[in-house]
Simulated assay, not measured.
Amino acid sequence: MTVLEAHSNSVADHRPSEEPRLTYVPAKAWGTRIAAVALLLVVVSFLWSIASNPNFGWTVVGEYLFDPRILSGLYLTLWLTLVTMVIGIVLGTVFAVMSMSGNVVIATIANAYIWFFRGTPVLVQLIFWYNLGALFPELSIGIPFTSLWISVPTNTAISPVMAAVLGLGLNEGAYMSEIIRSGLLAVDPGQRQAAKSLGMTSGRALWRIVLPQAMPIIVPPTGNQAIGMLKTSSLVSVIALSDLLYSVQTIYSRNYQTIPLLIVACLWYLLATTVFSLIQARVERHFGRSSLQASQARRARQ
């Protein structure tokens, strides 16, 4: 036996023996199960107390749930939500890009818009647009320093619907601007530099390269804003616009069934919010496919 073999045998003799394989048995979560059962009993008891309480007027709820006046108000609420969100997304994109501009004048104007509409209550803005005729009896548009001007009475141009669209849309644009700006800033600046090196203009690089990568960050808060706008639109009832809440208020002011009619409004708001949430989840999955595929490719390479 050589010296090397003797040394190897000596090292092998001093190696620690292999530890026995341990079997992990998860602990039985009896405490969690008992808490879940207790919580379920509390929820069922609460729901039963609501369903069996005659003061809620469930028969009146069923009677007015599909009332044409309620459905008309629901349609206006959904229409306002969609229109103001489109306006908010468009304005938000424009002012987000402007606020990131290197031009001081452009960036200052964008930041002033965001500062004003985020700093004043949306209810005040709605009332302001509704009463704009008190400040400007006529609205004029035309070419400066010429006689080519058109004037219309402000109360004719700014109807309650237009006041609602302006108030909600401009306010939403300020919030969407910050959401979109945060998404754009999250994209690696090297992406813009690479796009410019390929000969792309700034606008084309923004539309084709930067925005698609920012969408997974922009979509979740935008969905929350849409759901919030659905409920915020109920403020238009103060300017006598027949949305869902105003329609409910009109009915219960005559039959004095306040609680049942408010439950009708809540049920429709909950249904619309649920649909919006499902759409948001679908859009998030769509824009999250690229990041999911990239992570799967990295795991495959590892």
Score class of each variant (00 low, 15 high):
Pro26Gln: 15
Ile87Asn: 00
Ala174Ser: 10
Leu123Lys: 08
Met200Gly: 10
Leu65Asp: 06
Leu230Thr: 07
Ala38Trp: 09
Ser295Arg: 15
Gly190Phe: 04
Gly102Asp: 14
Trp30Asn: 13
Ser140Thr: 09
Leu241Lys: 09
Leu71Val: 06
Ala214Asp: 09
Phe56Asn: 04
Gln280Ala: 01
Gln193Arg: 14
Leu76Thr: 03
Val61Gln: 00
Ile150Tyr: 14
Pro189Ala: 01
Pro189Leu: 00
Met98Cys: 07
Gly223Asn: 02
Met100Cys: 04
Tyr113Asp: 12
His14Leu: 15
Ile141Arg: 09
Val37Ser: 12
Phe56Pro: 00
Ile89Ala: 04
Asp243Val: 05
Asn111Glu: 15
Ala29Ile: 12
Val238Pro: 01
Val104Phe: 14
Val11Gly: 05
Val43Gly: 08
Ala265Thr: 08
Leu261Ser: 02
Gln302Cys: 10
Pro153Leu: 02
Trp115Arg: 01
Asn103Cys: 04
Ser253Leu: 03
Gly92Trp: 06
Ser151Met: 05
Tyr113Phe: 08
Val37Thr: 11
Leu235His: 02
Ile179Gln: 02
Leu185Val: 09
Ala205Met: 08
Leu211Val: 14
Leu39Gln: 14
Gly169His: 07
Tyr64Asn: 03
Trp79Ala: 05
Leu74Met: 08
Gly73His: 00
Leu139Arg: 06
Asn131Leu: 14
Ser182Glu: 13
Met176Trp: 01
Ile89Thr: 11
Asp13Tyr: 10
Trp79Lys: 15
Thr146Asp: 03
Gly119Asn: 12
Gly183Trp: 03
Tyr24Ala: 11
Ser234Tyr: 06
Ser159Gly: 12
Gln302Glu: 15
Val61Cys: 04
Ala194Tyr: 05
Ile227Val: 01
Thr154Met: 05
Met176Cys: 04
Ala272Asp: 02
Phe46Tyr: 10
Leu91Val: 07
Gly133His: 05
Ile227Gln: 13
Pro16Tyr: 12
Leu206Val: 07
Val94Gly: 04
Leu91Tyr: 06
Leu41Asp: 11
Ala6Cys: 01
His14Cys: 12
Val42Gln: 14
Leu78Gly: 00
Leu4His: 14
Asn53Gln: 11
Ala174His: 06
Ile87Leu: 00
Thr93Cys: 00
Phe116Asp: 07
Ser159Cys: 09
Val219Pro: 02
Gly173Glu: 02
Thr232His: 12
Arg15Phe: 13
Ala194Cys: 03
Gly173Ser: 01
Phe66Lys: 10
